[in-house]
């Protein structure tokens, strides 16, 4: 019969039109009902969203690993100029010796961190570069240190190095708990261990 033939055809056309405007987004958007103005061509995407959680880097690295490695690179890079100032600003042998040891350890940790970051496939640009984070010596503080007399320098140096080491140990300990990549958590263990050792040596320095 004619009416029943026309009806399904019209209904099919309707469905097709609705689908075309229906913006079949990933979040299961139902087709718009009348009253919902839809003027433009649909903006559609085929792939479903990635599951919740930290962004998925390649291999065994999780979001904590990447964040900790990037932060460690930024923090260690920032503390090197502070250590570099030591020979020219103080004659105190114990301070000079500690600065040399911390510097060597940090240089090695930096190399390991950078290699692990390369392996992780994380973006090359460090999101924390140039950013004053807790425990970091600022450019202004560094300028002050560059002209401070010996005793004043040693006091400020002690404060800044302690802040840096305490923060390093804090985040390295967290990385040991929440990281996934075994090499990265092992490095975090080393950073926490050496940092704790340097903190006690720092506390024993002559005032």
């Amino acid at each position: 019969m004619r009416p029943s033939a026309v009806t399904p055809a019209a209904a099919t056309l309707l469905v097709v039109v609705l689908l075309a405007v229906g913006c079949a987004g990933p979040a299961a958007t139902p087709a718009p009902v009348s009253g919902t103005p839809t003027g433009a061509a649909p903006v559609t995407t085929g792939a479903p969203p990635t599951p919740a959680g930290t962004p998925s880097p390649s291999g065994p690295f999780n979001g904590t690993d990447i964040a900790w490695l990037q932060l460690t690179v930024a923090m260690h890079e920032r503390v090197l100029p502070l250590l570099d100032l030591v020979p020219e600003r103080t004659a105190e042998p114990a301070v000079r010796r500690l600065a040399v040891r911390v510097r060597e350890t940090h240089r090695a940790d930096l190399d390991r961190s950078r290699r692990l970051l390369d392996r992780s496939g994380a973006p090359q640009t460090n999101p924390h570069e140039g950013h004053d984070m807790p425990g970091m010596v600022t450019a202004t503080e560094l300028t002050t240190l560059g002209t401070a007399p010996d005793a004043e320098f040693r006091r400020l140096f002690g404060e800044h190095l302690r802040a840096h080491l305490e923060q390093s140990v804090r985040v390295a300990t967290a990385e040991q708990r929440s990281g996934a990549d075994p090499d990265t958590t092992a490095l975090a263990g080393a950073v926490a261990r050496t940092g704790t050792g340097y903190l006690s040596q720092l506390a024993q320095l002559p005032g």
Binding site: W68, P134, V171, A174
Partner: peptide
């Protein structure tokens, strides 16, 4: 978001 799993890492 920026420091998942790292308490105390942020400002």
């Amino acid at each position: 978001i920026i420091y998942p799993g790292l308490p105390g890492a942020s400002h």
